[in-house]
């Protein structure tokens, strides 16, 4: 027996999905297909493109700064993924214990996430330059300064968000398993590593997926904090692509080719990482 609502949904599903499908096609599918096509073209404005084959890819892969940005981005992603997840988990673990003001702390830790990346970048630019001025330096003094500046900014922003996911995961843990572990004489450390963490793997999968992909794609904070200075040494991949596209006329296709390569890298890493963490998920 299908309800009235169910029947209308079956009959009119096309109408209901249409706005989303259209938005998806206009906002994603068309630009994506066009983007891939344009990566094989020489063009200045997207409306008059000339097909040139693989030339853009050759130029993209022979660009030293592209490889520098790639290595820099990988290092950034590794460091931030570790720091964000470890700290977020620790904070979530603390805030699910009965401490006074846990709710206040949760809100406070989550707040940085509500601020846009560009504004955050400029605020941290002022803060970090203010502190560094003490030693007569500034954040764009070298790529190393920029790296740690961005790590701080990004962790500060992301920890609260991941913390919320971990808190939800921790609260959903089955109490009986933990109790059973305690009855069996497991100490706190054993409970954490042998029981809680394996049960938390679904949350860890989600959080590490988000941090890895967000780390790879980071753009606005990079633009606002260092803008790649000095000499593009603090440039992450997304900014490198942007600069290639807009820096020189005639290089739009090369930027586009880099973007396609970038997409493939992020997709492959995300799939691998997802497989890896999902395979460790257990059920109570």
């Amino acid at each position: 027996m299908v309800s009235m609502v169910g029947r209308s949904v079956r009959r009119w599903w096309g109408l209901f999905t249409l706005p989303t499908v259209l938005a998806f096609v206009v906002g994603f599918v068309v630009p994506f297909v066009m983007g891939v096509y344009l990566s094989f073209c020489r063009f200045t404005t997207v409306t008059d493109a000339r097909f040139i084959g693989l030339g853009n890819y050759r130029a993209a892969l022979s660009d030293g700064e592209f490889w520098h940005a790639l290595v820099y981005t990988v290092a950034f992603t590794v460091v931030t993924t570790l720091v964000v997840n470890v700290v977020a988990f620790a904070v979530a673990f603390l805030l699910t214990k009965a401490i006074r003001g846990a709710n206040v702390f949760r809100s406070v830790f989550f707040m940085p996430n509500l601020i846009g990346g560009i504004i955050l970048g400029y605020i941290w630019l002022l803060l970090l330059n203010g502190v560094l001025a003490h030693w007569g330096r500034s954040i764009t003094y070298s790529g190393v300064y920029g790296f740690w500046g961005m790590v701080m900014l990004y962790c500060w922003q992301q920890i609260g968000y991941m913390m919320i996911i971990y808190i939800a995961g921790l609260q959903a843990l089955p109490g009986d398993v933990i109790e059973a572990a305690q009855v069996d004489g497991a100490n706190g450390r054993q409970t954490l590593f042998r029981v809680t963490l394996p049960l938390m793997m679904p949350s860890i999968t989600v959080c590490s997926f988000l941090t890895v992909t967000n780390g790879f794609k980071m753009f606005d904070q990079n633009l606002a904090l260092t803008n790649g200075a000095p000499s593009n040494t603090s440039e992450l991949l997304a900014l490198n692509i942007y600069r290639t596209f807009y820096g020189r006329t005639g290089f739009e296709g090369v930027g586009q080719a880099k973007a396609v390569v970038f997409f493939v890298i992020v997709a492959v890493i995300a799939v691998l990482q997802n497989r890896l963490t999902t395979s460790r998920e257990v059920s109570a």
Partner: peptide
């Protein structure tokens, strides 16, 4: 200003 702060 000191030259080390010129970048910003």
């Amino acid at each position: 200003v000191p030259a080390t702060q010129l970048s910003s």
